[in-house]
Design a protein around this nucleic acid. Structure first.
Length: 250
DNA sequence: AACGGTTGCAACCGCGGAGGG
DNA sequence: CCCCTCCGCGGTTGCAACCGT
């Protein structure tokens, strides 16, 4: 394990933004697999003080670990109600569709799948699903969004925009294909939500909570049809593609 | 049984963002 | 503004277990 960390250190070619790690290195904090005793100490600490102020956790718990390691161990392994074992067919289906929608936003995806951690889902995706999905996409002749694509604003996929794009395409006009990020930005300029995380961060949680403030209609007012968006995400037939410069459900 | 290749997963790492001084 | 600290995220690594020969 020592060897591992040394290799990892040697690989560091990029500049360090913080001095945090080197400081931790100097302290000689433990790395590698967690022991049962360490787990117990961490669990007791979190039960006593709660999931906050992670920088205090190693000290409070009496652990010779860095705060990041503690946090990771807690969230990925020790948190109550974490589901272990095989992913169910419904979970896999949901992961694929959410990944199509959100890209590699593992925490957002995990937030929609009770009992699964972002790390679990990421690992499962990388080892089981990524190849499957990629090979499937390659067979598909339609221009399906790459995984990092995100749902554009409602105003941007208005039927008017879609029709305009369709007709322009039919006339053989060359249309600049914007990246999903650009599309999102434009959605924002159109008065809808625009930043790159907005759809994921605001849409998903707000739908379930019934909070409308995350979703705006074309006129900029708050949408009231959260259920519609919820259904859209959970719709098994969901897929999107470019029509001209617009993203549309297909 | 022994060996090498592959896979799954826990853990590490750097970076970006938020917030406070 | 700038700097610093802390949090949280996604990418990546490497070990252990598994599998095939």
């Amino acid at each position: 394990m020592h060897e591992k960390s040394q290799l990892g250190f040697a690989r560091q070619t990029k500049k360090k933004k913080t001095h945090e790690r080197s400081f931790m290195d100097q302290l000689g904090v433990r790395k590698g697999a967690w022991t049962k005793e360490e787990d117990l100490l961490l669990r007791r600490c979190i039960e006593k003080y709660g999931e906050e102020k992670w920088y205090l956790v190693p000290q409070r718990a009496g652990l010779n670990r860095c705060r990041k390691s503690c946090r990771l161990r807690w969230f990925n392994y020790l948190t109550p109600n974490i589901k272990r074992g095989e992913f169910g067919a419904d979970e896999i289906d949901l992961i694929i569709r959410l990944h199509k929608l959100l890209g590699n936003r593992w925490t957002l995806i995990a937030g929609r799948i009770p009992g699964r951690t972002a790390n679990d889902i990421k690992n499962y995706w990388n080892s089981h699903l990524s190849k499957k999905v990629t090979s499937h996409d390659n067979k598909d002749t339609t221009k399906v969004l790459k995984p990092q694509a995100r749902r554009p604003s409602k105003s941007f996929i208005s039927s008017e925009n879609i029709e305009t794009s369709r007709s322009q395409e039919e006339r053989g006009q060359q249309l600049p294909l914007d990246s999903p990020e650009d599309l999102f930005q434009k959605g924002g300029e159109n008065g809808a939500l625009g930043n790159r995380d907005s759809m994921g961060k605001l849409l998903l949680p707000t739908i379930d909570n019934g909070e409308a403030e995350g979703i705006r209609d074309e006129d900029g007012t708050f949408a009231e049809d959260n259920q519609e968006w919820h259904d859209w995400i959970l719709d098994p037939s969901f897929s999107v593609q470019f029509v001209g410069r617009c993203l549309v459900d297909t």
